[in-house]
């Protein structure tokens, strides 16, 4: 464990807590894409298949349970909690996210480190996570004004993988034979997808204006 990875995990945890806070306290999921949340459930479900078979550390297992539990409960809230579901704009959140999964599955079957069930599922979860934010970014373009909590959620979610990139650089230079191109490239693509959001988020913060992505 290094400081970059810890910062990444804490930023990721913060993003999830911000979203849960928004949904649980103000009972609203306005501006939040259910499609992205569903994709994250699949990302964690396929990423943590080994949660009961391989033990790395208490921290590792605890964080896996937190990410699994929070992503499932966010989807549950948005789908089945009456008050929250009412605030979900289904008309705008129309990204066909199941179509995102197909290329990720195919790519995972083609490009992986080892052709085993676990490894292919794990690689699939990496590819899927890289594009999971797309429905949310599309929804952002459509809904003109987004509230601060949603903006913070996306900012933290994008930032965590940025810290992971620093972690991979650190590990590359400090651990011999630590080379994982698949992880690195999908992590880089994932972070780059947030580039324009980060830009407009920074502008809105600098000019102290509401965050608005150009249509």
């Amino acid at each position: 464990m290094n400081i970059f990875r810890l910062a990444g995990d804490m930023t990721h945890l913060a993003s999830v807590l911000v979203l849960l806070l928004k949904i649980h306290t103000i009972k609203s999921c306005a501006g939040v894409s259910l499609k992205t949340q569903e994709l994250y459930v699949i990302v964690f479900a396929t990423r943590y298949l080994d949660i009961f078979t391989s033990f790395v550390s208490i921290y590792n297992s605890l964080m896996k349970l937190i990410f699994l539990g929070s992503s499932f409960s966010i989807v549950w809230y948005m789908r089945y909690h009456k008050a929250v579901h009412r605030t979900y704009d289904r008309e705008q959140d129309t990204f066909r996210h199941w179509f995102l999964m197909l290329p990720c599955i195919l790519l995972a079957l083609l490009i992986h480190e080892k052709f085993t069930f676990f490894e292919v599922m794990w690689t699939f979860s990496l590819y899927l996570e890289a594009v999971a934010i797309l429905p949310q970014l599309v929804l952002l373009q459509r809904t003109r004004n987004i509230d601060n909590l949603t903006g913070q959620y996306i900012f933290l979610l994008g930032g965590y993988r940025g810290f992971y990139i620093l972690n991979w650089i650190y590990r590359y230079f400090t651990e011999p034979h630590y080379v994982h191109w698949i992880t690195w490239i999908s992590g880089l693509v994932q972070t780059l997808l947030y580039a324009d959001f980060f830009y407009y988020y920074f502008l809105s913060w600098k000019n102290n204006k509401k965050l608005q992505l150009p249509a």
């Binding site: 990721h12 080994d50 391989s54 790395v56 550390s57 590792n60 085993t116 992880t183």
Partner: peptide, 10 residues
């Protein structure tokens, strides 16, 4: 034989 390196990252 080369052990499958356990995934230590989240």
């Amino acid at each position: 034989e080369e052990h499958a390196e356990t995934k230590d990252e989240l």
